[in-house]
Design a protein around this nucleic acid. Structure first.
Length: 346
DNA sequence: ATCGTTACGGTTGAC
DNA sequence: AGGTCAACCGTAACG
């Protein structure tokens, strides 16, 4: 439990094991790199391990996003009711059909694409558990229609069936910015899209930081703890966003968390980082740190508010397990710069 | 001295 | 409700 108060690394920086660095600090790392500061100097200056600096910069160069990936959770299921229904239809149409044939048909009929088509074993399981053999299937169907509102209507699967490319969810109303994220549709709900919007907006707009859960109390808390981290649980989602929107938004889509965790005093200077600026204890308030920077991939100059998520950042970046990559993160999912209008942060 | 890589111990959230 | 799993995190250490 003490973990939540943070630890101190070899450079004297404070971190919370298992938790991402504050977005402000991540941004600062990228900013400094953009200004030509060497990673080793960034590491020393911000008191972040050079491995972390390297990782963040590598990720930024690769994806254009400084935001951390989505922690926790599970892959969204591919066996949506629609898919199950299709499988059942195939099976009923041809009781002798093999699972791999069903798989092929799902692809051929565009029920699924190569990224979300169920595995043969999944199809077999569906046939076995949800559909049963053909004779039972009809029985199931009859019974089913009598007792259930619809096929698998109660399946938790539905919670994961994204309405299109992050669909126009009711909660995607942040800052008037559409949360639509082309190409991010299937593999993962784009947490980052949302959290980008939320976090970035807040980042750009100090005024936006002062919500009911605004930064001020959190900063006090931090000050009181003399550099200690607030509880990781304090970094939680803003419930003003819909649940769907915040589903994967552990990456500080909430302003208070966003800002509070940005409070790293730079060496020899006790300021509170917050995105492209930092809060000066001298009362200077929000201080811009740089006019902005551009990303080599997008070639778009960007103010800090232009943080865009490259989408699901679940690709392995020097971690334990090699990721198959293809099935979950098709290339197009990594190139969807989402632009945010700084003016939207009013 | 610098930097990329990776084992490690940790957190998180869906199932 | 609690455990499991698989994702992520940053650090530390190695090369």
């Amino acid at each position: 439990m003490d973990q939540s108060y943070g630890e101190v690394n070899q450079l004297g920086g404070v971190f919370v094991n298992g938790r991402p660095l504050p977005n402000g600090l991540r941004l600062r790392i990228v900013e400094l790199a953009q200004l030509g500061v060497r990673p080793c100097d960034i590491s020393r200056q911000l008191r972040v391990s050079h491995g972390c600096v390297s990782k963040i910069l590598a990720r930024y160069h690769e994806t254009g996003s400084v935001l951390p990936g989505a922690i926790g959770g599970s892959k969204p299921r591919v066996t949506t009711p629609h898919v199950v229904k299709s499988i059942r239809d195939y099976k009923q149409g041809d009781p002798g059909i093999f699972a791999w044939e069903i798989r092929d048909r799902l692809l051929a009929d565009a029920v699924c694409d190569k990224y979300n088509v169920p595995s043969v074993s999944s199809i077999s399981r569906i046939l076995r558990n949800k559909i049963g053999n053909l004779s039972q299937s009809n029985q199931y169907e009859n019974h089913h229609t009598k007792t259930h509102p619809g096929p698998l209507a109660c399946s938790p699967v539905h919670a994961y069936s994204f309405p299109g490319p992050l669909g126009p969810s009711p909660g995607s109303k942040v800052g008037g910015v559409s949360a639509t994220h082309v190409g991010l549709s299937r593999a993962w709900p784009s947490v980052h899209t949302l959290s980008n919007i939320l976090g970035i907006r807040s980042f750009m707009d100090p005024a936006a930081l002062a919500g009911p859960d605004g930064y001020a109390p959190i900063m006090e808390e931090w000050a009181g703890r003399a550099g200690a981290f607030p509880s990781a649980r304090a970094v939680h989602v803003d419930k003003t966003a819909s649940d769907a929107d915040v589903k994967y938004s552990q990456c500080s889509s909430n302003l208070s968390g966003y800002v509070s965790t940005c409070a790293y005093p730079p060496p020899g200077q006790y300021g509170l980082y917050g995105g492209s600026g930092y809060m000066s204890p001298a009362g200077a308030g929000w201080q811009a740190q740089s006019p902005g920077f551009s990303h080599p991939l997008t070639t778009a100059s960007a103010t800090c508010g232009d943080f865009h998520s490259a989408g699901p950042l679940r690709q392995r970046l020097g971690d334990r397990k090699p990721v198959g990559g293809l099935s979950r993160y098709p290339p197009e999912h990594v190139t969807c710069p989402q632009r945010l209008s700084p003016s939207g942060a009013s």
